[in-house]
Amino acid sequence: MVVGRVHLGPSFGTRRNMVTTKAGVTEPARPAGGVASPARRSPRRYPTRRISADDVRDLLRGVADPEIPTVSIVDLGMVEAIEVRHDHIAIELLPTFVGCPAQQLIRDSVFDALAPLGIPVRAEFTFRVPWTSDRISPFGRERLAASGFAPPAGPGEVRCPYCRSARVAMDSAFGPTQCRSLFYCRDCRQPFEAFKPV
């Protein structure tokens, strides 16, 4: 089911030389011809000992939710777990909203970002831990505000991202994407969007 309106953000490029399997695993593509069937293929060794979870996290700082292109999925708090195993990297992602239409796109971008490592990647979305707007990092909140998007805040605590005024009013709890509400600043008379606290 394709849900909703996907905002195509900056191009994430193609998955060069990578194959995505149905289970959400990418593997380095094999040259055409002479490919052994997966069942018979001998286990492959990858140089994972040289890669740390932090290395992976750093690469994921280049991946954004296309609906919030100025903040990486790391700073949004969408990356719940990174495990570097002997033959693959396992990543657990949390959708910001249940009906987030960009899940497939984000997963593909994760595969792209990690392709230079040359190791199979398994990336899965889970509800095991609920994503909440408290997971956005301080840096992520700064980036949101800098792009004219008020970071999540409780009722009465939303500030205008342009003039920092507290004299703001919510026009609607629902904005152009699931994570946004519409506000109006009474001081600089600017409409703006705020991240919904969830």
Binding site: M1, V3, R5, F97, G99, F174, Q178
Partner: peptide, 14 residues
């Protein structure tokens, strides 16, 4: 906008 967003939430839950 709100009804479209609500619809998107509900279809996502479904």
């Amino acid at each position: 906008v709100a009804m479209s967003s609500l619809a998107q939430d509900e279809l996502g839950h479904a």
